[in-house]
Write a protein that binds this DNA or RNA. Structure first.
Lengths: 148, 148
DNA sequence: TCAAAAAAAGATATGGGACTCCTTAATGGG
DNA sequence: CCCATTAAGGAGTCCCATATCTTTTTTTGA
């Protein structure tokens, strides 16, 4: 559904939410190990998220790293998707028509719109904090198995 | 949601269903004009669909072209997606985890699975014939506006 | 049987996503 | 103030989806 970049962004943000605070930051190496993502590439993605200045923050130097404020944890997953430029993915027509709309629908539109609405609702409702809490229950995970 | 190739495949198939029969075939030029897709690229995609030997058929030479049998029109949209290799797209984890499952879910899994199920149901239920009929009511279209 | 028509096949760009590496800047500890 | 640490930034690689162009093969109709 989403690009690799976005997948890493989501997993990394959840991990940072889970493990960091303003006092205790997490480093790139730990993050990419925890979510099993390529470190250098993850760095680029975290840079992008950081520049947005809304979701994650970072500090260089010893004991530096990434963190996320309690306030930012209340942001919906949709905020991450927006930064990663996935907004259009969710609004796109199944058949790829630019002008597909309620007024000029494609043959899939009338049925797909209800499903799309649920997707949008889910990503708007679910916050970073929600996902972090799910992890803490231990019933849920964000680490990929190492590829062979 | 899907690749350009798949979008063209869907639109082209619907157009062929709408305009062709075993007696009256439609040519590549007409198809790509009707759905506004690059002709040469569309040719490749139709080749792939054709090779599958289930959905569309073709005949070269004068008055040749592409067509689809009445029987094949009863195939679900999912059949096209399968040929285009989009099967994994629909089964993929939102966070990109290989092992995400009911037993080992990601934090989005429990809510996303219901939406995913609806998507799968829609693509399994909706047939090519259904889409063709929607077009015939005239309330629906498959042609993109020409890009400037 | 020949020529035209149309799809099939092959060869070749091109742009962007995915990723790596190297250098630079910022920070904190000794 | 210097050095180790860590993120930021820049440049470049690789591959695949997208797309085009050309040549070959198949078929039909005259």
């Amino acid at each position: 559904m989403f690009s690799k970049s976005t997948e890493y962004a989501l997993r990394a943000t959840i991990y940072i939410a889970q493990k960091s605070s303003e006092e205790h930051k997490v480093g790139l190496a730990e993050i990419s190990a925890a979510i099993d993502s390529p470190p250098s590439f993850t760095a680029k993605i975290l840079q992008a998220l950081r520049k947005d200045n809304k979701i994650i923050r970072s500090v260089p130097g010893p004991n530096g790293g990434f963190y996320i404020t309690e306030k930012a944890k209340n942001l919906p997953v949709h905020a991450i998707l927006k930064v990663m430029g996935e907004d259009d993915v969710l609004n796109k027509c199944v058949l790829g028509l630019d002008k597909c709309s309620e007024a000029k629908p494609c043959p899939m539109h009338s049925e797909y719109k209800f499903i799309k609405a649920q997707l949008l609702e889910l990503f708007d409702r679910k916050t970073i904090l929600d996902l972090e809490n799910d992890i803490k229950t231990g019933e849920v995970f964000i680490k990929n198995s190492r590829k062979k």
